[in-house]
Amino acid sequence: PTIVLKVSPEELKALEKAGVEIEKIEKNEDGELYITLTPEALKKAGFE
């Protein structure tokens, strides 16, 4: 199962800087950012 999270541009930068593997980055028509994370990326980021 993949996880989709709504993030701010600042959060996205912080995640990328931390080396979190982001599978997909999407922006909706309201300009909101959503990222898709794999279970492996979540484990690496410390989420179980």
Score class of each variant (00 low, 15 high):
P1V: 14
P1G: 14
P1Q: 13
P1E: 14
P1D: 09
P1C: 15
P1A: 15
T2P: 08
T2E: 07
T2A: 05
T2H: 15
T2M: 15
T2W: 13
T2L: 15
I3Y: 13
I3L: 06
I3V: 14
V4T: 15
V4I: 12
V4Q: 10
L5M: 12
L5P: 00
L5W: 11
L5D: 00
K6Y: 07
K6Q: 08
K6M: 10
K6D: 01
K6W: 07
K6V: 07
K6E: 03
K6R: 13
V7M: 05
V7I: 13
V7S: 02
V7G: 01
S8D: 04
S8R: 05
S8K: 08
S8H: 07
S8E: 05
P9C: 07
P9Y: 13
P9K: 14
P9E: 09
P9S: 11
P9W: 13
P9L: 10
P9I: 13
E10F: 09
E10C: 14
E11P: 00
E11C: 13
L12M: 08
L12C: 02
L12K: 02
L12P: 00
L12V: 06
L12R: 01
L12F: 07
K13N: 12
K13Y: 14
A14W: 15
A14E: 12
A14R: 15
A14S: 11
L15A: 03
L15C: 03
L15S: 00
L15W: 08
L15Q: 00
E16S: 08
E16N: 11
E16R: 10
E16G: 06
E16P: 00
K17E: 11
K17Q: 13
K17P: 00
K17G: 09
K17W: 11
A18P: 00
A18T: 06
A18R: 09
A18Y: 09
A18S: 07
G19H: 07
G19C: 04
G19V: 02
G19L: 06
V20A: 05
V20W: 02
V20K: 00
V20G: 01
E21R: 04
E21F: 06
E21C: 02
E21I: 06
E21Q: 09
I22K: 00
I22R: 00
I22Y: 12
I22C: 03
I22P: 04
I22V: 06
I22A: 02
E23A: 09
E23Y: 05
E23C: 04
E23W: 07
E23N: 09
E23R: 06
E23I: 13
K24S: 11
K24A: 13
K24C: 10
K24T: 07
I25A: 05
I25T: 06
E26R: 07
E26K: 04
E26D: 11
E26I: 09
E26T: 11
E26A: 08
K27R: 12
K27M: 11
K27E: 12
K27S: 13
K27G: 09
K27A: 12
K27T: 14
K27P: 08
N28V: 07
N28W: 08
N28A: 10
N28C: 06
E29I: 11
E29C: 09
E29S: 13
D30A: 13
D30E: 12
D30M: 14
D30W: 15
D30T: 11
D30H: 13
G31Y: 03
G31T: 02
G31R: 03
E32V: 10
E32T: 14
E32R: 07
E32F: 14
L33W: 11
L33S: 04
L33K: 01
L33M: 06
L33E: 01
Y34C: 04
Y34R: 06
Y34A: 04
Y34Q: 07
Y34K: 06
I35F: 01
I35W: 00
I35K: 00
I35Y: 00
T36C: 04
T36E: 08
T36P: 00
T36Q: 06
T36H: 11
T36F: 10
T36K: 06
L37P: 00
L37V: 15
L37I: 13
L37M: 09
L37K: 00
L37Q: 00
T38H: 09
T38S: 08
T38W: 03
T38G: 05
T38K: 07
P39V: 11
P39S: 11
E40Y: 02
E40N: 02
E40P: 01
A41D: 07
A41F: 02
A41E: 14
A41K: 01
A41S: 07
A41I: 01
L42M: 09
L42K: 02
L42D: 02
L42H: 05
L42Q: 04
K43C: 12
K43L: 12
K43N: 14
K44G: 15
K44Q: 15
K44R: 04
A45N: 03
A45P: 10
A45D: 03
G46M: 06
G46V: 04
G46H: 06
G46S: 03
G46T: 03
G46W: 07
G46P: 08
F47W: 14
F47D: 03
F47S: 03
F47Q: 05
F47H: 05
F47Y: 12
E48D: 13
E48F: 04
E48Q: 07
E48I: 15
E48M: 11
